[in-house]
Design a protein around this nucleic acid. Structure first.
Lengths: 336, 336
DNA sequence: TTGTATGCGTTATCAT
DNA sequence: ATGATAACGCATACAA
């Protein structure tokens, strides 16, 4: 069943059928009705590939992320998919893992599919070694790119992110303001976003005229950052005699590991130890006490990404970089 | 840059270029090399739409799920996307929410995109009122469908699932075997999978010759099932004088709500109350004590779905229904 | 082994 | 307002 079949049945040319299909004003009400009737009772649906070939678009956005099973990324995927769908765009997913090579082929593959745009989730898509970012520059030549929580200056690359540095600084400040003296900093990423957060932690100390104790910085590798790993690591620190009365984490799950440590040692939260997470994910409410965390405005970011993408595809001038302000959501794991 | 450009530069016909592109054996090594050289340094990539139009496929699978931000579904998406990608298929995502209407348009949209196959995640795609499943029968006529954790007898509809009834029965049995007398059953779904789990709970009681106390069945509505909601509901039950010494939940998050209730009332787990969740998700390890839960073999299910889909697309005969056996993973929230 | 010609199902241009 | 036809870029049957 194709456009020729319809045209025959309706006694018109394929051009007219096409016009009806595309709501062209140059069709008489009578023929429009006649054609529509045929279309409806034949169950005809235009062939998307042919349409794509002619228009050079299938209204598709590529969504790239390291790992769709990560709660934060999953939430972003859900937000983005919904928003794009409401604008009549479909999303094709590409989980690229953590190697640069896989990211490159992921971008390449989507490009070869002629997606209308791509969203790269997380600053891990930007390499510290700038030479390695050529694949982004290259891709941007043929399709608009939007970075979620990443920063990269390049034509046709747009960035929408949260001010992680400031948010982390405020979180640390809150800890200091509520009497904490030695804040353990737990982090898992050394890319753009990770560096910004660390900088925020440092800034908070500096603001108070405090020196940074390097032994309070705990880095966790991607595949060694389960709650158990974190708990065990903090127990180790205890043994080594590293003292701390607060934990600031670059991700909620790390904070939960810290709470497990507290449970294991009998330390009361927040009386003896305060804990702050990052992302304000659902499981801030799972813990006991509930976890103070940084809301990094994911929904707003995703909505803005979609807005930006639509604008770019419309040929409008769009801001290259948009920064949202995070917010510390106070709960019971920190003091008043 | 299209196939004609390449053919000119290489001094051959487009047919030869096409043959080179598709690894046809009927090309002399010499010309193949010449053509490849041109392709490589021109950066030419075949147009996916044209290819799709000719072959009537773009090697795409539609992934439908109610909510990509749900941890279980997010994990399934990640597994599926990876497995399909390794077979050179891309996945387009469609989060359809919870209304039948949205599911129908979701399926319809993907069908109009000519995806090669679709995976419907969760038994919520199968309506209790069979008339409402016509959209599935209809879709199955034009594209193979695979149900993840759903059951539906229909040509070209394949089902891969976990034996939720048996797994739930074993979980309940474990509670009874460890001395629990009154097991509160927390559930959130009345569709196929939900009914099976409930049946498993019932079966366990029956096996022990115990009568079912209807007041021990707690249903939670989709938008009223946060951990706080669950905690509050159990506190209500307490007030009403409904006694129980164990909680069996149809999903981990519900079980975590029960643990919050225990914390609120000071009940010790598992001494005074045992708790079992379902899905064996990451956050079984978040809680204190860690949560006993049912592993419903999601990875195996996803791998098998992809296998099945590939077989079907290859024209092979594939099993209509495959059932995996769940497994109760014992942790500290239940007694020995 | 290689080339020619046709079909895939649209949209869009240009007549009428 | 409507119709004829080219163009989109590829794969492939058939011819050479």
């Amino acid at each position: 069943m194709n456009i020729y079949d319809i045209s025959k049945r309706a006694g018109v040319s394929i051009a007219t059928v096409s016009r009806v299909l595309n709501d062209s004003p140059h069709v008489s009400p009578a023929t429009r009705q006649r054609v529509m009737a045929v279309i409806n009772d034949s169950g005809y649906v235009p062939n998307a590939f042919a349409r794509g070939l002619g228009l050079n678009t299938m209204k598709t956005i590529g969504l790239l992320c390291p790992d769709a099973s990560d709660p934060y990324q999953a939430q972003a995927l859900a937000y983005l998919e919904n928003a794009f769908r409401s604008r009549n765009y479909d999303c094709v997913l590409s989980c690229t893992g953590k190697t640069l090579e896989a990211r490159i082929t992921g971008v390449e593959l989507l490009k070869s599919r002629h997606v209308d745009g791509m969203v790269l989730m997380g600053s891990s898509f930007i390499e510290n070694n700038d030479k390695d970012n050529d694949y982004i520059r290259q891709a941007a030549k043929s399709v608009p790119l939007i970075l979620l929580n990443g920063s990269f200056a390049c034509e046709r690359v747009y960035c929408v992110l949260c001010d992680d540095q400031r948010a982390t600084m405020e979180a640390a400040q809150h800890l200091l303001d509520t009497g904490c003296k030695r804040i353990l900093y737990l982090y898992h990423s050394k890319n753009y976003s990770g560096r910004k957060k660390l900088a925020g932690y440092r800034a908070a100390l500096k603001n108070k005229g405090m020196a940074l104790d390097e032994s309070l910085l705990c880095y966790f590798d991607q595949d060694k950052m389960s709650v158990q790993d974190v708990r065990d690591h903090l127990l180790e620190l205890d043994k080594k005699g590293v003292a701390f009365d607060a934990v600031l984490a670059s991700e909620d799950s790390l904070a939960i590991g810290a709470m497990k440590y507290a449970r294991a040692t009998g330390k009361r939260i927040p009386e003896e130890m305060s804990v702050v997470g990052y992302n304000n994910s659902n499981f801030c409410l799972f813990t006991e006490p509930e976890l103070t965390s940084v809301d990094n405005k994911l929904k707003a970011i995703c909505d803005h990404i979609v807005e930006t993408m639509m604008g770019v595809l419309d040929g409008k001038e769009m801001p290259q970089k948009t920064v949202f302000t995070g917010e510390v959501v106070l709960r019971q794991s920190t003091r008043k």
